[in-house]
Amino acid sequence: MKNVFNSYDMKDLKLKNRISMAPMTRSRTIKGEVPTEMNAQYYAQRASAGVIISEATQISLQGQGYADTPGIYTQEQIDGWKKVTNAVHEEGGKIILQLWHVGRVSSSKVNGLQPIGPSPLIAKDTQVYIFDTAQSKDATMIPVEEPKEMSNDDITQVIEEFRIAAKNAIEAGFDGVEIHGANGYLLDQFLRSNSNKRSDRYGGNKENRIKLLLEITKEVIDEIGEDKTGVRLSPFIKFKDMDDPEILDTFMLAAKELNELDILYIHLCEADWDDAPQIPESFRKELRAAFKNTIIATGGYSLDRANDVVKKDLVDIVGFGRYFIPNPDLVNRLKNNYPLAQIKDSHTLFGGRDEVGYSDYLNYKA
């Protein structure tokens, strides 16, 4: 019977199972947003996943929205990520880098720059975080600032930054990249009618609102190939002031266009809180009909639910997020029905200069 423990070929990328470690922001870089040996250990410990999708990684200083998140735009960052990819590959794992631009979800207190976005509309009830000192245990939440409306030159620059970031990711040893078009960040802001009020070729109808996503995807494909390019989208998630009544139609149009580009996968980011909206099976079937390649789904899945969507051929790979934090050997625990460890201290989820709550969780001992 088809289940998440089966091997799976994602085009030329041969995966040992259908479980993905989902991208999770942990804010654990050093000065210059550079990954370290500690990051390498953390990811290598979790290399039993069929594929790891890295934490969101900004393509430029302008693209950063939170403190201590990694970048992929300097040589030091590339060299730092090489430690991670080498460590994962030595453990027999696969790892994809998620490329990120936060757009309007930022503050000048994070990176010294005014945020940018499709329109000069602040994201209501939205915060980002900084650390007051290098020794701070807790992040300090601050409100986002009003963004500057992006000019044509700004858009051209962002497209180029995604291309260069993809090139840098392959130099750093990643098996591919994931373009982050979800969760209220820059590309999601262009997709949605409530955050995109432009009157040029990037705004107005849904055909225009998907243009930036498609242009970036084409540039990334031209640089590294469609077999190394995935896209993450979140049509059912409304936080960060992203409630758009047209998003499902816009998403499906984008999915059909991405299918024509023959990209590696679409990663469906689903809500994972208790009263989150359930995605109807009819939507999953429509997506499967529109997009022929791999579909990844992440968002509060249990093992039974993950196996159900895989068995029904609605999803090819299921991502697990927080379970992977205290259970580096999550695949083994799920497969053998071993107990799952719990997160020791929520204060350690975001930020830290040592391994506590990060790479100090142990594998299961029977």
Rank of each mutant, 00 (worst) to 15 (best):
E55V: 15
E76M: 12
Q41W: 00
H89W: 04
L61V: 15
G321F: 02
N39E: 06
G63N: 06
F350L: 13
D154Y: 12
K94A: 07
R28I: 07
D175K: 14
S359I: 03
V128Y: 01
A172V: 01
E145S: 11
I237R: 04
P245D: 09
T133I: 00
S119A: 07
R353A: 06
T69E: 12
H180T: 03
K82C: 01
M141A: 07
N152F: 06
L340E: 13
K312S: 14
E171Y: 00
N17I: 01
N332H: 14
K292F: 02
I263D: 10
S108D: 10
S193K: 14
C269L: 10
L113K: 12
Q98W: 10
V315G: 04
I296N: 02
L61Q: 15
F320N: 01
D329E: 10
K344W: 10
G80P: 04
Y73R: 03
Y43W: 11
A47P: 13
M21T: 05
V356C: 09
S7Y: 07
K240Y: 13
T133G: 08
S234N: 02
D262Q: 14
K137G: 04
R284V: 04
V84P: 05
A49H: 09
E91A: 06
I19H: 09
V128D: 01
L61W: 05
M1I: 10
I296Y: 05
K14L: 13
I295G: 02
M242R: 08
D262N: 15
I221H: 09
Q127S: 09
Q62Y: 10
Q135E: 15
G92E: 00
Q62I: 05
I53T: 11
T57Y: 08
K148E: 03
V105W: 07
A290T: 10
N194V: 05
K148P: 02
M21N: 08
G32E: 00
L99P: 04
F162P: 12
Y42R: 14
L212K: 10
E37L: 08
K109V: 08
G184C: 03
S48K: 15
G50T: 08
L349F: 15
H101Y: 03
I266Y: 14
